[in-house]
Design a protein around this nucleic acid. Structure first.
Lengths: 344, 344
DNA sequence: ATTGGCAGTCCAGTGCAACGAGTGCCAGAC
DNA sequence: GTCTGGCACTCGTTGCACTGGACTGCCAAT
């Protein structure tokens, strides 16, 4: 069981390790922080922290470093987010405001963010695909599974399987299905695929509650398909910072560089990170779905683009990063960017 | 003096070193290539090559590696450009043709090129600034020097000093200058700054030959200013390839990453590379103006964008790269890109 | 619960010797 | 003149043993 002081020790270990890249020992902590207890006591606390998997020793008889779980505990409960300095805020304002068009503003944003954090910065550039719905087909696979096929004027076909609500015991017979198909097509054909979601919501109003549940599933499937198909790009900056923190990547920075070059994958990962109440989302080390990013952490924030939709902005760096400062930077830049784009 | 066979030895050294990253010794050459002479003879040739600064030994009693000058000799006189395989050509075609808009085609191009070469690929995205000329001012600095000031509607002011032709002994007096100023402004004010060059050419027709020379200088200065002001972007891909060839960078890849992130600097460098008769330009190691790129070579090619102007495309990698293949790849992709964009 | 002390562990650095790849040079052969 | 085989020499690399230092874990005492 980790005591109250144990958590303070964890905080000290994280801060010290982030600052020095040296595994931190009990003596260091006693010297550098005023806990008012002896090294042996700290050692006991550290044993408890290790027991709980929050810290680990690279080898017997060396100091401890935080594990992914330790960093998680730190960012969730122990880190206080420092506000940016006035100078930094001013720099963000003036630099971003000089941007000409959206592309330029985002390019500036990503550079600014990478300089502010000394990490790799990423910004999602929302690009709305201009395809129109040509036809939607529904095929019954079994009593509880439905295949939804979306055909657009670009000639592209996407399909997706939908699990129907279990509670709904009235099977969809061919007749009903035909009606549903006709209604959905009536409501959607000829529309831009980005308008599919609102149109479906409107359609749902006209249906009985049981059918509405089915429609919702179909709508979700279509939304997911459209989402997958967005040709969003990713702006990157500060790759050099990866090389600068090379020593934090045991093997090499190669897998990291490979991962961030896979824009499609990174975008999905980025989109799937859900913001917490602080307006950021953090994915630490092996929490990360991509193996290449096992030694890196990603902070994501959201900004509201001119179209009103939420796009992502974030930084990526070694798990050994200054979370407090980076959270502050991502939040500040995201907030300012939303404001700037909202005004226009 | 390097003999005929000496150059063959150089070619062998370059090829072997590029393939193996091992300094190559006389014995290796005798074993692997059939020169029909003994190792001692090769050693003599190598001594001559070293004398001429074409190869060097990392330390006494080790094999030789090519110097920048050696690579230069290789690409200028010894390398034969291998044509791409049919499969590769087909891959280029089909992959690029799927691109939606210019941005998308270029994004695909840069990825394609980096995969083809296993190097960092760069593509210049031409962006024409939409500013209009508001006023042009001419100020005499001395008998032979003139200050040209360009003011555009964005409120931006650029100035440039022009050296007047020495042969022209009639000094420009204030009166004449005034007339010239009026004519230039008459011809240019209100025009897009990208149209400055053709408009000036038209104006030159109306002037006397002596004045025409002056106008040409002014025109060149304005063109240079406009060129500097272009907000061209650079698309990058394959940064991971740098990490993959990490061992070719004695210190670290950090300075290289830093250099390619400086888009403005890279663009200027890129633009200043003049294509040779093979349609490519090669800058090797320390020939490069940027210190951070002292261990890298850049190959540049040109493609004709839809607007008809020439933009750059290229690859960047360690000086120890497969020049033959990379030249072929850059040429093929540049050519195909021009064709694709020309059709539209 | 906390502390001082002590034995034990492991890493990083150092010095040394043996090894091997490759050169430079020279005297002799073609 | 050009080429060749041979030989001494130079260095980088590898393996090994050794030492110093930085920690930890545990225990008995407070």
């Amino acid at each position: 069981m980790v005591s109250e002081r144990g958590l303070d020790v964890l905080r000290a270990i994280v801060q010290d390790y982030v600052a020095s890249r040296e595994p931190v020992g009990s003596k260091t902590i006693v010297d550098r922080y005023s806990f008012g207890v002896s090294a042996a006591t700290i050692r006991n606390d550290m044993a408890a922290l290790e027991e709980d998997g929050l810290i680990a020793a690279p080898h017997t008889s060396s100091g401890r470093i935080p594990t992914d779980k330790g960093y998680r505990m730190f960012v969730d409960h122990l880190a206080e987010v420092r506000a940016l300095s006035t100078a930094q805020r001013l720099a963000i304002r003036t630099f971003l405001e000089e941007g000409a068009d959206l592309e330029d503003v985002l390019a500036r944003t990503v550079r600014m963010l990478s300089q502010l954090t000394n990490q790799v910065a990423l910004v999602q550039v929302p690009v709305v695909p201009r395809s129109y719905v040509r036809h939607i087909e529904l095929v019954v696979l079994s009593a509880s599974r439905l295949l939804v096929v979306l055909i657009t004027d670009a000639g592209r076909v996407d399909q997706r399987v939908v699990e129907l609500p279990q509670s709904d015991h009235e099977h969809l017979d061919e007749l009903e299905l035909g009606e549903l198909r006709a209604r959905i097509n009536g409501a959607l054909v000829g529309r831009l695929i980005v308008d599919v979601a609102p149109a479906l919501t409107a359609l749902a109003e006209e249906l009985s509650p049981t059918r509405r549940a089915v429609l919702e599933r179909i709508g979700a499937a279509l939304a997911a398909t459209v989402d997958d198909r967005r040709q969003d790009r990713l702006l990157l900056a500060g790759t050099a910072n990866l090389a600068r923190t090379e020593r934090d990547f045991p093997g090499s920075i190669l897998p990291v560089l490979e991962a961030i070059e896979e824009q499609v994958v990174m975008l999905r990962l980025f989109r799937e990170m859900e913001l917490d109440d602080r307006g950021v989302s953090i994915s630490i080390g092996r929490e990360n779905p991509l193996i290449g990013l096992a030694e890196t952490s990603i902070l994501a924030g959201g900004y509201r683009s001119s179209a009103g939709e939420v796009a992502r902005i974030g930084v990526l760096g070694p798990t050994r990063m200054d979370y407090s400062q980076n959270i502050a930077a991502v939040r500040a830049v995201a907030r300012y960017l939303s404001k700037l784009l909202g005004e226009e």
